[in-house]
Amino acid sequence: MLIPHPLLGLRDAQEFTYLGDASLLNRPDPATPGAEAAFCDYVFLRDNPAGVHRELWFHEQGDRSWLVVTRNTLTHEILSAELASDVKAGAAQ
């Protein structure tokens, strides 16, 4: 599998380590009511879809950036890859 790194181009997936669902970027706010339950969901529950999945990959043997990769879990086709820092900054705006 080759991951299209936004800065470095196509890179061997073996250079990366995998974390999981990109919803992990959206950490709940510990100060809100119900935060404990929200954290349980955040830490333990996953959509685990058969199909398009947005997920976090770390370019460990590379530029050490976190990517949000959109990939089909049935075919392994990669639809896009973005820098997680850009995704996070975009969401904050």
């Binding site: 470095l8 181009g9 890179r11 061997d12 073996q14 250079e15 043997q61 590379g62 530029d63």
Partner: peptide, 16 residues
């Protein structure tokens, strides 16, 4: 697993 054509003089990368 790096295409040498993408690593010409003046280029660098980190890989396995």
């Amino acid at each position: 697993n790096i295409d040498p054509k993408t690593l010409g003089p003046g280029c660098c990368t980190r890989t396995g």
